[in-house]
Design a protein around this nucleic acid. Structure first.
Lengths: 341, 341
DNA sequence: CTGAAAGCGCTTACAG
DNA sequence: CTGAAAGCGCTTACAG
């Protein structure tokens, strides 16, 4: 009448009965094996294996006040910049015993708010935010949520963040173009409401000024990181009375658009004009020509963010609140010596 | 001494006290508002808002035997084919009240097994599998797990699946090349241990045979869907005594590699040789030349898979176990008339 | 080293 | 329409 319910998934009570011990002992065997006698442990483990028992994580989480999952918030999962970060987060989360919830916000504050509530609802123990925005951050409840930023800062708040030095990296790749002999070097920006886009613009400008080269607004074309904006910006720059001989684009995607504008105009890169991107997305190497760019350590960013979040979740303050990871200048075929005179 | 713990997140008891009702009434107000008197409901809602209460999903899930989350299993989240499917899953999951867990397996059976245990552990109510493989499928416990396949079937099992007709789509794009006047049309395969790669090969072969054109093994170059394999296959095909005038590649990524091999050989597409891909990944349009390809309805695949999984989870058998979504031939600049004679 | 018992925060028959 | 009570499946002080 009782006990035997072969259809249902076994619970800790079934295992206790099977092994002839209390549920407490089963639990200890699984949570802190060192606490239980070797013989008892073996018995329990045998019962666990035999029944194919796997603890109910909802029950454990309720009891221990932990969700065992974290949430990653992105604007748009289809953006090729994100997946490698997810991989890094997932890999480290697995090692630390967490699962990863995917939060796609479509850049919509309402969805961001819903996802934030998720950690308030204890479905997630904390979140990694890549959207550059967190709703209701003045709410004290939200304040207590473990949050780590990755890539993009949230203006006006000094939350823990893993980032790169966008300004320095932009300056470095601009200097690479200067070193190639270019003197008119344009910039296609990202969306300037994002701090990372502004930093890249700043870096470009600083490098040019340091070299005594022009860095006026005529050499700046607005973009939004996406391919079509790059194509439009490329066309605009080529139509200039005195077109640039090199273009530093704030993202690889937009650089692809710039390249297509160059080809459409019957020009070639790097022979007629050099193009450099930013990010080193998976396809940058397969571009035609292969793209000179700044490699962002996306996998490491994801891993580092997860490690910092873990520290926050277990209650330790992270050793450092701002972790700046190194970038790498990747020189490929899309940039070359300046041939114009 | 009791009650007031301003630091902790409020529980249902706090709300009950605040509203002067029982916890049952608070719960009903949230779960089935129609059951409670309008006045009472308003009181409760006021207390909820005031305290910023949001129910503990772990407790609810434990009580209701539901996780409120589903798991999506992919080989490699960095593959550009997946993110759009995730977007579709996530969008529909949100609408149905589920969260989405990301399961990246690195094509490793051990990780697949771990993720499968996750739904046995009640962290997820079911899973959408894109890896073409499910461990321990003969285990009766695994049998009871709600699973929907997307894109790739699992050999030897007839699990519910949302798919496309790979064979028909491959035949269609091959006929497009035939219609352009090509008579030597090669194929770069995907990994032939995957059914979808075999189906595309079959479709290519069938279309050629129907047209009385050669479809011998000399025109088949092995690939694995990735860029480098496409480049190698492209080189091999160009080195043939009688090279093809058109190449149908089993994926857009590999087509990018083929294109680079063509350029490296000093040839151009489509003037010297036509290239067609498969998938219509986000970058296909930005390729140089823009890629002729087969569009897979990835967003719809994700949405459909989630809807079918939901039916399985709530206990309804899905209306149809095999849903075949339509593909679309996308003709762009990488294919053109055959110019050789 | 082990067990009995309390309790995590909910939901839902069961009465009234 | 509402409340008291049981119970979901665990974990963990507390005794012994």
């Amino acid at each position: 009448m009782s006990g035997q319910r072969p259809e249902a998934t076994p619970t800790i009570r079934d295992i206790a009965r099977l092994a002839g011990v209390s549920t407490a002992t089963v639990s200890r065997t699984l949570m802190r094996p060192a606490m239980v006698a070797e013989e008892t442990r073996a018995q329990v483990l045998r019962a666990v294996a035999e029944a194919g028992y796997t603890p109910n994580l909802l029950a454990r989480g309720l009891r221990r006040h932990e969700a065992g999952a974290i949430l990653v918030l992105v604007r748009d999962i289809v953006n090729p910049f994100y997946p490698e970060i997810f991989r890094g987060v997932e890999r480290t989360a697995r090692r630390l015993g967490f699962n990863v919830l995917m939060g796609n916000t479509d850049d919509d504050p309402a969805q961001e708010r819903d996802y934030l509530r998720l950690v308030l609802s204890r479905r997630a123990d904390g979140m990694i935010v890549l959207t550059g925005r967190i709703p209701d951050l003045d709410d004290p409840a939200v304040r207590r949520v473990p949050i780590v930023l990755a890539s993009e800062p949230v203006p006006g708040h000094d939350l823990p963040i893993v980032r790169i030095d966008n300004r320095a990296a932009a300056a470095e790749i601009t200097r690479h173009l200067i070193g190639l002999g270019h003197r008119r070097i344009a910039h296609v920006t990202g969306p300037l409401d994002q701090a990372i886009a502004r930093d890249r613009l700043d870096g470009w400008r600083a490098a040019l000024r340091d070299a005594g080269l022009p860095a006026g607004d005529d050499l700046v074309a607005p973009g939004d990181f996406r391919v079509p904006s790059g194509a439009a910006a490329g066309r605009a720059l080529l139509a200039l009375p005195e077109p640039p001989t090199a273009i530093f684009v704030a993202s690889d995607e937009a650089a692809m658009g710039v390249l297509s504008a160059i080809h459409a105009a019957g020009l070639r890169a790097p022979q007629d004009i050099s193009v450099a991107g930013f990010d080193d997305i998976p396809f940058a190497e397969a571009f035609d020509p292969p793209l000179t760019t700044v490699r962002q350590p996306r996998l490491a960013m994801g891993e580092q963010a997860m490690m910092m979040l873990h520290l926050l979740i277990v209650g330790d303050a992270p050793a450092e609140r701002v972790v700046t990871l190194p970038t790498e200048l990747i020189i490929r075929g899309s940039t070359g010596p300046c041939r114009s005179r």
